[in-house]
């Protein structure tokens, strides 16, 4: 019985963790992994063209 509870908790625990992490990461889009994220201004500016 104990083994069932352990497996159950492990699977559901990991699944919840992975789901939350995935959705958070997806929502951030591509730059989520970038080290320079805080100083990066590139996503909010178009080069002004004449």
């Amino acid at each position: 019985m104990l083994v069932n509870i352990v497996i159950g908790i492990a699977i559901f625990g990991y699944a919840s963790f992975a789901l939350v992490k995935f959705i958070k990461k997806s929502k951030k889009g591509k730059c989520a992994a970038c080290d320079l994220q805080k100083s990066c201004k590139s996503e909010c500016r178009f080069p002004p063209t004449k």
Partner: peptide, 14 residues
């Protein structure tokens, strides 16, 4: 578009 694509569209178009 999937969630990641939607988020990227939002980031890129603002």
């Amino acid at each position: 578009p999937c969630l990641a694509t939607t988020a990227t569209i939002y980031k890129e178009t603002g």
